[in-house]
Design a protein around this nucleic acid. Structure first.
Lengths: 127, 127
DNA sequence: CGGTCTGACGTACAATCGTACGCGATGGAA
DNA sequence: TTCCATCGCGTACGATTGTACGTCAGACCG
């Protein structure tokens, strides 16, 4: 399938906004990015342009403003990105990362519950 | 603490070998990298040199051969790397990634068991 | 002793990334 | 009508990355 040139870190942050909020203009994306991140408006614009030329998003002019929409599905991009990380940092093993996440980053009440559900489900569907 | 300049993807693959196998020469690292990856000997050498100058590994000459050893702890580097990814791709939320890993990548029998153990443990220590 | 292998080390070089400026057009405020 | 706030868009530019070549000097083989 469409083999896109890999997202850079900055591009990820911007793409994420489109996935969460749906189609948006540069300004809207810009405003959706945490103040603290301090990413320049023009920088956001550049990332969007790059995402476009890489095929991750599409855009069309609406009046004199350009509106960007996600084109690649979040799920797919996330899968590719995570696969890559797991490969390079853990040699392809999934568990070390899962373990790391659970042990090193806090999982809250709700997360724990969900996790239990996931485990139950997997365990059930197997035997 | 020592604030290092971020690992690049290629550097990660190389650093991983040092974490897993302990101190090693360029050749040893080179040989530990999957054939399929086709990373040139000189490339490995460059990555090691860069890791050295970034402070992630240290090295010393043993005879006329240089031996590299991890200096930064795997745990730390992994934490920083994963934190960064979670931040950019999931806005800082851990669960989406955990969910993704469990649902999209296979967890085997043993992993499942371990996972159950982790959940139990967390659940116990909380209430 | 003279090849040949191997390693360190310096250097290279294009691609990508992070970050942004500046210009020219446009639409609304005064 | 005049001006300013916006936008799109082209362009820039140094840093980092991926990938590797070439040179020089020891080590080992015959």
């Amino acid at each position: 399938m469409v083999d896109r040139p890999g997202l850079s870190k900055g591009e990820m942050e911007v793409a994420r906004v489109l996935w969460e909020a749906g189609p948006a203009t540069v300004r809207e994306v810009f405003e959706a990015i945490p103040e603290s991140r301090k990413m320049d408006f023009a920088t956001v614009q550049t990332y969007l342009r790059r995402l476009d030329s890489k095929g991750y998003v599409s855009s069309k002019l609406s009046g004199r403003t350009r509106v960007y929409s996600a084109r690649a599905k979040a799920r797919t991009v996330i899968r590719d990105t995570v696969d890559d990380l797991v490969q390079r940092l853990f040699g392809g093993d999934t568990m070390p990362l899962v373990r790391h996440l659970i042990e090193e980053r806090g999982i809250d009440e709700a997360g724990l519950e969900e996790l239990r559900g996931l485990v139950d489900e997997l365990e059930g569907g197997k035997k």
